[in-house]
Every structure is written in C-alpha cells, then in structure tokens.
C-alpha cells in the first residue's frame, strides 16, 4: 500500500511543478463553459424548448455536465501509456515489484488530483454565478447515486484510456488514434451536448456503451429525467463495464507484452 501512496505523492509533486499547465487548462475551460452558455442562450432566444429541455434545464446540463467532466477527467492517460510503450519506459516498470496496470491507475489518481480540485472549484464558482438559471436537485438518495456513478465513471474513463494507450504495442505512432478517441469519448459521453440531441438510432445505441454513463446519465438523474431505480440500474451497468474493461485490458496487456520489443534494452 505504501508503495502506491508513494506513486500518488510523486505524481502530485510532478503536477505542482507544472502549475502553468493547470492554470492554462482552467483558463481555457472558462471560455469553454461560457461559450456553451452563450450559444445555448442564443438558441433559446428563438425557441423555448429543445428536445425536451427548457433553458434552465440546458444551462443545468452544461454546468453539471462540466462538473462531472472535471471529476472524471484523466487528462490523456492514454498518451502516458502509449509513450511508456513506445519509448521503452515500460522496461523500468517491468523490473519493479509492482503491477504496471495498478501503478498507472494509482499514478493517474495523483496526476489528476490537482486538476480535479481546481476544476471542481472553478465549476462550483460557475454554478454559484448561474444558480438562478439552474434546476436544483434536493433528493439526497439521487445525489448519493450520482456521486457513486461519477466515481465509477472516473474508473470507466480511466480504463478506456488505458485500453486505447495499449494499442501502442501494435502501432508505431498512436497520437492520431488518441486524439480521435478523445473526441469520440467526449461526444458519446454527452460532453458536448445531451445525447438525446443525437438521431434516435444513435442515441439508443449509445446507451449500450459505457461512455453514456460518464456524463450524460448522471446529469439526466440530476435533472430528474431519470428516477432512482434507473440510477441504481446505471450503477449496475457501470460495474459490469468496469469488470469487462478490466478483463479486456488484462487480455490485451498479456498479448501486447509478447509483442513488446523493449526499446532501449
């Protein structure tokens, strides 16, 4: 346990060194959030309801959606994994008495904690500013389920990122693939806009994948468009996906290791 705590501490210290990156991301996020609010405000000048969302519900979706996005983000752990494989940095991990997968999961917690704290603080400030245009959720059991879904969502997103990063065992350069998947995950998780805005077929299909449970599902719960039972079912689906993703990662990892050339040895 102590060795994993040490990994968290090291990743945390590393993030404190690169503070400018965190500041840059947060400043960029301010424009991100304001842009979404601005465009939806412009849209609602011409209509009162968009796919079942009134203005206050849409602003709530943006605010809570971003809050959950900050809480589940891992800031490109797939790049870290693929870089470790491509540059041969994996050699160091393989010689340590630690599991690489556990190390990377632990390291990710330390790596994202500062960004998470600053992101959540920023978003809470936005929520405070826009509170008069937001829908409030007061049911504590729903809030508890949302909290559980968000924690599970963090790990679903993390495992998905690790899985994409492992593709580097077979491909020489995966930067293109990683940026493609980042956009893809954000779209299908509801990070750009509610998934219900998608064509009906695509919307129904998206609910079979784990992405929808990262942002869209908990935000729907908050808005009261889904009830407590749906939320509990969602927790079950997320748990199933977590197990499935872990098994897939294990299989891919074992197959990938056989292909690994260990650059630099």
């Amino acid at each position: 346990m102590r060795k994993y705590l040490f990994l968290i501490k090291t990743a945390w210290q590393r993030q404190l060194v690169y503070r400018a990156t965190v500041y840059g991301y947060r400043l960029g996020n301010i424009f991100d959030v304001l842009f979404q609010v601005t465009i939806w405000t412009a849209v609602y000048k011409s209509t009162s309801v968009v796919y079942g969302y009134n203005y206050n519900e849409m602003i709530t979706y943006v605010m809570i959606g971003w809050l959950i996005n900050f809480m589940t983000a891992n800031y490109g752990i797939e790049d870290v994994v693929s870089r470790n494989i491509q540059n041969g940095e994996l050699n160091v991990y393989l010689t340590r008495p630690l599991s690489y997968l556990r190390s990377i999961i632990t390291m990710s917690i330390g790596r994202t904690s500062i960004a998470l704290i600053s992101g959540v603080a920023l978003q809470l400030l936005f929520i405070f500013i826009f509170q008069n245009h937001m829908v409030a959720q007061t049911d504590l059991s729903i809030i508890l389920v949302i909290f559980i879904i968000v924690i599970l969502g963090y790990f679903v997103r993390l495992l998905l990122s690790i899985l994409f990063g492992l593709i580097a065992f077979w491909a020489t350069d995966v930067s293109g693939l990683n940026s493609f998947f980042a956009t893809f995950i954000r779209l299908l998780s509801g990070g750009y806009a509610p998934l219900s805005l998608l064509p009906a077929m695509l919307y129904k299909l998206s609910l079979f994948f784990p992405f929808a449970y990262i942002v869209f599902f908990p935000t729907q719960l908050y808005l009261g468009k889904l009830d407590l039972m749906d939320g509990i079912k969602g927790v079950g689906v997320e748990l199933l996906w977590l197990v499935l993703l872990y098994v897939i990662i294990k299989i891919v990892w074992n197959k990938g290791l056989k292909k690994y050339e260990g650059v630099g040895i």
Binding site: Y18, T21, L27, G28
Partner: peptide
C-alpha cells in the same frame, strides 16, 4: 510548458 497554453 506548452500544453496549458494550447488549451487557451
């Protein structure tokens, strides 16, 4: 560091 600047 360039990552944060790119985000802005």
């Amino acid at each position: 560091e360039g990552d944060g600047l790119w985000k802005i």
